[in-house]
């Protein structure tokens, strides 16, 4: 099993332990405002080289402006003849790589494009819940609502991904995709029939992302986009709700939950996963 670590800023390189990790993931996964510049990226590449680690460039979903930023990074790699993996989280980025940088990189389908069921409440649906009493306001009569957990097909569907579709796999192969990336979702994984190599992220599972960065400032609440002060680099939030059995983490524009179970316990190794991407801190 290959062990990789995802780091998105130069200070994070302190987490890299050369004896433990064989690969460095570098860059932002969820926000185009945080795409690293060429200078920091050059440092990260040099760091990986020095530590005999392979290098993967992480890319987020982007607008045309973000695509321009990525294009500059891709050109930097091409100019310096550095070949590496690019983790693609936007179909546009994949298309851009094919049209402008064919054969320069090894594209990997990122976890935003590998659709999985990631609702943190899902376990309350799949596992038997206690009956719940409801009182009729008019008659005072009590009714018991019984939870009937769904059957095998639903259970399996919640653990699957559309990537198991053969036409999609053939189509992606045309883009040079050989690896896909997955969330380590709490309900477990069902990945039969996927021909690609597979990576899994741990311990944070991506729940939801927005471009309306909810980090509290009034400008962000009203105008939502364009008010970035990079608060996500100073603090994050823990969110609890009586309706969601897991603590949520809000950092920048994205929500996560932490899967307390190890890869083995979720059946990950049975699914042919050959790389674990460790996130030493909440990704942003």
């Amino acid at each position: 099993m290959e062990k990789a670590i995802h780091i998105s800023h130069p200070q994070g390189l302190k987490y890299f332990d050369g004896g433990k990790y064989q690969r460095l993931y570098w860059g932002a996964e969820f926000c185009q405002n945080l795409i690293p510049d060429e200078k920091d990226t050059a440092k990260a590449v040099a760091f990986a080289l020095k530590n005999h680690a392979a290098f993967s460039l992480m890319t987020p979903f982007v607008t045309d402006q973000g695509l321009g930023k990525l294009d500059r990074l891709f050109s930097y790699f091409k100019k310096n003849k550095i070949t590496c993996e690019v983790i693609v989280n936007d179909w546009g980025v994949l298309e851009h790589l094919r049209s402008g940088f064919d054969q320069c990189f090894e594209p990997v389908l990122g976890r935003l494009l590998v659709r999985q069921q990631r609702d943190p409440s899902l376990t309350t649906v799949l596992e038997q819940q206690p009956p719940y009493a409801v009182k009729d306001k008019k008659t005072g009569k009590l009714s018991l609502i019984i939870h009937r957990p769904p059957g095998e097909l639903y259970r399996r569907g919640m653990m699957a991904s559309y990537i198991s579709s053969r036409p999609l796999q053939d189509f992606l192969s045309g883009f040079g995709i050989e690896r896909i990336e997955l969330n380590h979702v709490i309900q477990g994984l069902y990945l039969r029939g996927i021909k690609f190599k597979k990576s899994i992220y741990t311990p944070f599972v991506h729940v939801s992302t927005t471009r309306f960065c909810p980090m509290e400032s009034k400008v962000q609440k009203i105008y939502r986009i364009g008010g970035c002060r990079k608060e996500c680099q100073r603090h994050f939030f823990k969110l609890r709700s009586k309706n969601i059995p897991l603590t949520l983490f809000k950092r920048g524009n994205t929500l996560f939950y932490k899967n307390p179970w190890g890869i083995q316990a979720s059946g990950g190794s049975d699914c042919g996963i050959d790389r674990v991407v460790y996130q030493p801190e909440l990704p942003f």
Binding site: D119, S121, V125, Y132, I145, P150, F237
Partner: peptide
């Protein structure tokens, strides 16, 4: 649709982003 379990639905679950949370700020 069974996506929301009955006990949770009956407590007034409105779906993730419409739900009420308790939030605590944590320093990086």
């Amino acid at each position: 649709g069974p996506i929301i379990a009955p006990s949770i639905l009956m407590r007034g679950y409105l779906g993730g982003c419409r739900d009420r949370f308790q939030q605590q700020e944590i320093s990086c």
